[in-house]
């Protein structure tokens, strides 16, 4: 049985925070899960149109963003190890790299969306409604909703990482109390995990 719940002086329970984070990740997975259901149904109903619409997306940008997220996932994972090894400076450095990569991802996304919008493709736009088939409209609708929600999660993830980095800097997150950093890592990996599926579903289907 867990011993620590009744230890009066120690309210810190790393495993409780970890499960809490995992449970939260489950809800996030199901949140995106709902969208994946919508995607799979419409993909099934409009296969040709989805392939056609995916031609509009730039595989290179998608691939670059995939590589970026994978690398950032690695850097934050390594930072949990360096924290255990009491290398505070290196930990902060790695977190900084992670944040920078995350921002670059968002910048890429900004230009990608910008290019689409310049071509008159956005949800509800006249061009989309007149020049594209229903399946394509759905594809772009889902593209904006899913990558948009994902980008929102990137932003939330960055905030959590910055918060954790601040606590590492202050020393309240350290090798004995690493839960906050580990949870920030878990959240960031979730963002990565979602992207691992978004990338092939939107960029690799033509």
């Amino acid at each position: 049985m867990e011993q620590n719940a009744h230890n009066e002086h120690v309210h810190y329970d790393a495993e409780a925070s970890k499960i809490g984070m995992w449970l939260f990740i489950f809800t996030e997975l199901l949140l995106f899960g709902g969208l994946f259901i919508v995607y799979s149904v419409y993909r099934f109903m409009n296969q040709e149109a989805f392939h056609l619409a995916a031609e509009e997306l730039n595989t290179t940008i998608g691939a670059i963003n995939t590589v970026l997220l994978l690398v950032s996932s690695m850097t934050i994972a390594v930072s949990t190890t360096t924290l255990q090894l009491k290398k505070k400076g290196l930990t902060l450095f790695l977190l900084g790299i992670t944040v920078i990569i995350g921002v670059v991802f968002l910048v890429n996304k900004y230009f990608e969306w910008g290019a689409k919008i310049e071509h008159g493709i956005w949800p509800g736009s006249e061009h989309l409604k007149t020049a594209f088939s229903q399946g394509e409209i759905l594809f772009f609708g889902l593209y904006y909703v899913m990558t948009g929600l994902h980008a929102l999660h990137i932003i939330i993830g960055l905030i959590i990482i910055l918060f954790a980095a601040h606590r590492v800097y202050k020393g309240t997150v350290n090798e004995n109390r690493a839960a906050l950093l580990e949870n920030a890592g878990l959240y960031w990996h979730l963002v990565d995990l979602i992207w691992i599926f978004l990338f092939p579903l939107f960029y690799l289907i033509h």
């Binding site: 011993q3 620590n4 230890n7 120690v10 810190y12 329970d13 790393a14 495993e15 690695m74 994972a77 390594v78 949990t80 190890t81 255990q84 090894l85 690493a178």
Partner: peptide
């Protein structure tokens, strides 16, 4: 907690 021994993952694995 002492019984929650942390496994330190080597860099090489990552």
């Amino acid at each position: 907690m002492s019984n929650e021994k942390h496994h330190i993952v080597p860099y090489r694995v990552y």
